[in-house]
Design a binder for these strands. Structure first.
Lengths: 189, 189
DNA sequence: CGCGCGATTGAGTAATTTCAAATCTAGTGG
DNA sequence: CCACTAGATTTGAAATTACTCAATCGCGCG
């Protein structure tokens, strides 16, 4: 929980009292490799803050192919936000790739925290701001960059991830087949 | 300005007094066709709420090809948020496609409103929430759907836009060439 | 009438995908 | 320590798809 406090305080300071109350909205959950946090078709009860481990958020098409919308590591938030915010069924899946821990927050929890604490509303707004800007960049990249460029951008943005996860998942994130990705950095870069 | 009030009050009610103060942060600007609101390389001083007209937000690559990140019509917000929030130079451009009006808000204005009015912080959070969910969906679509499917999704989401703007811009939004888009709905569906 | 812009069509080209097979690697149990 | 296996990566070749380039068509407007 101390890590959560630090995370929030990167954006807004909290008194001990406030944090004591705020933290009651979060529940800790240990997650093992291959475990699902979100499963398509189900209701999405929680969003997750990653405390440790590596997770992927992905869409599964009719033929069983995966498309990775997002990776998540420590201090990243992760959810199928369309299903979560609008109380629908998930179309995305979230799975643990490397054992770790997450904090779970319900939508009521988020809204209650936001309503009761201007600070927390501010915190969520800033997080969304950053997230929105990042997604805008990702869309620009998907539209305008070649697979080579996207691979380079990715490796600059997440240099450590490249080492730690199978490359086929990076291919699924970049939107190319694993064979193509493999050829990209064998055939002259 | 009455339209702005309605727009905000879709999310949170305001007293006359509050609105009188809030509206002083916005400045009205009439925009003619082909006019730029954001130009790559420049600092991004404002974000824009569209009151009328049609706008496009796009990236221009080295060869002069356009990639449309977003269209914007009434009540849509529009900005190069990476440059705006992080005070960098714009990499995107925003241009008027159909004459209209926008309200301009500076980053200081946004932050001041958010700090002074919990309500406004809430308003911005909710808008960002919706926007984030929409971008997450767009990314999923860009990764997993064929151009045909993306075209169908687009026409379901924005049935009116299809009629009102040249199809080549829709191609730039979907990430295909205009020729390919043209063949999509002539050749069987 | 003719210009200009957008849309369409055709043909050839380039890039990526798909399918299949071979290779490599890390972890397991003997 | 070695052999074995499952998963990941690489490689090759064929098929598919979208792109580019060029020409034509259609329409609104001066």
């Amino acid at each position: 929980m101390e890590r959560l406090r630090k995370h929030i305080e990167e954006i807004t300071p909290l008194s001990d009292e406030e944090f004591e109350h705020i933290k009651t909205f979060f529940t800790l959950r240990k997650v093992r490799k291959h475990q699902y946090l979100i499963q398509e078709g189900d209701a999405v009860g929680y969003e997750y803050v990653v405390l440790g481990g590596i997770f992927k958020l992905f869409y599964l098409d009719g033929e069983g192919k995966e498309y990775i919308v997002q990776f998540a590591r420590v201090n990243w938030w992760m959810c199928d936000y369309n299903a979560y915010f609008f109380k629908g069924k998930a179309t995305l899946n979230a799975v643990c790739m490397e054992e770790g821990e997450v904090l779970c927050l319900t939508l009521q929890g988020r809204e209650k925290l936001s309503a009761d604490y201007h600070k927390m509303e501010h915190f969520f707004r800033v997080k969304l701001t950053n997230g929105y800007a990042a997604l805008q960049r990702r869309i620009t990249s998907l539209l305008s960059s070649t697979p080579q460029e996207r691979y380079r951008e990715f490796s600059e943005l997440y240099p450590n991830l490249i080492q730690e996860i199978p490359k086929k998942y990076i291919a699924e994130y970049l939107g190319v087949s694993r064979e193509t990705l493999s050829r990209l950095y064998s055939n002259g870069k």
